[in-house]
Amino acid sequence: MSSALDLFDLKGKTALVTGASKGIGRAIATGLAEAGADVALLARSTTALEEVAGEVEELGRRALVLTCDVTEGEQIRAAARTVLAEFGGLDVLVNNAGGIGHAGPFLDLEFDDWTRVLRLNLESTVHACQVFGRHMVERGTGSVVNLSSIAGLGGTPMLSHYAVTKAAVVSLTRTLAAEWAPAGVRVNALAPGWVRTDLTSTFFADPRATENLLAAVPSGAFGVPREVVGSAVYLAGDASRGVTGSCLVVDGGTTCFVGGPQMLGFLQHGRIPA
């Protein structure tokens, strides 16, 4: 008799992770390998990818390094040809590549700021979903995990361009989930909160900004990439067989907390004054 833990077993599965050279993408890539999957690693930095490949191979899984700029559709299509030729198919696609670029008030952002973030966060996901989604639909099986962000779930001052792209990723996820469900392909999103990575390092460089950000996190701690891995493994495999079109939030309670930093201070002290 199989156990509940078998539902999280990815042995015999193949996966591809974009933006796999660092941060959340790197953690997810090695996490999928720990669960048993062979993993194709895609990013612009060959050296960094080779380091991740070494970690995957130490876990006894196969790693495939694919140097690729995800903003270029033809490069993604070329990578797809290599993956399908080497692995014979793809079971799990994790669209993780993304970035923030310049941050600031909406009126201070240049249109080029919008263009760069739209291409990196949204168009790259569209390209990958078109290429690998077609393959999965034809096979009649597959799981797509798109990385969104809590920034895309509400108003996010100073990050309007980033927030728009992440909201669009959630919308795309739900639409593709509805379109591809009859073919047996599931599509879900992950929405991390504030996670300490190279991408967010500039926000944590200012102690006052860090304090203000942390005040809105009920758990009292920023996330780390490893904390996103379990959710990704869950969405990738049979444990989430009945789940599609969802957006799983991993944010230490940030989006469920509407009382503001002052209320959080009261809660932490165990009382609210009359």
Rank of each mutant, 00 (worst) to 15 (best):
L32W: 05
G154W: 13
M1N: 10
P182L: 04
A189P: 13
M1I: 02
A236C: 06
L5I: 08
V144Y: 13
R208C: 03
A29L: 00
Q75R: 11
V164E: 09
E74W: 06
D108K: 11
P182T: 01
R77D: 04
S240Y: 07
G237F: 01
H269L: 06
Y234L: 11
L10A: 06
M158D: 06
G88K: 03
A216V: 12
A29H: 01
E86N: 11
G140A: 03
T202M: 04
R26N: 05
E72N: 13
E72R: 15
S240E: 06
T14I: 02
G88S: 08
G230T: 15
G98D: 02
A40D: 00
F204M: 03
A209M: 08
A215L: 11
A63K: 05
Q268I: 01
P182F: 02
V65Q: 13
H135Q: 04
L235A: 12
A40N: 10
K13V: 12
A53K: 02
V170E: 07
A85E: 12
N95Y: 08
G265K: 05
R196W: 04
K166T: 09
L32V: 03
R139L: 04
S124L: 15
G242Q: 06
G73T: 09
T125P: 02
V70A: 04
G101R: 03
F8R: 01
L172T: 08
V233T: 14
S246F: 10
P192H: 11
E51N: 04
G19H: 11
A40T: 00
Q268K: 14
F266M: 05
G265N: 00
G36M: 05
I24Q: 01
G101I: 01
G142T: 15
A20H: 07
A236V: 10
E179G: 09
D108N: 12
Y234F: 15
C68N: 02
A48T: 15
T14W: 00
F222R: 08
C247R: 08
R77Y: 07
V258K: 10
Q75V: 11
P182G: 06
E72M: 06
V145Q: 11
V187M: 12
R26D: 09
N146S: 15
V229Q: 15
P192E: 10
C256L: 15
A103M: 13
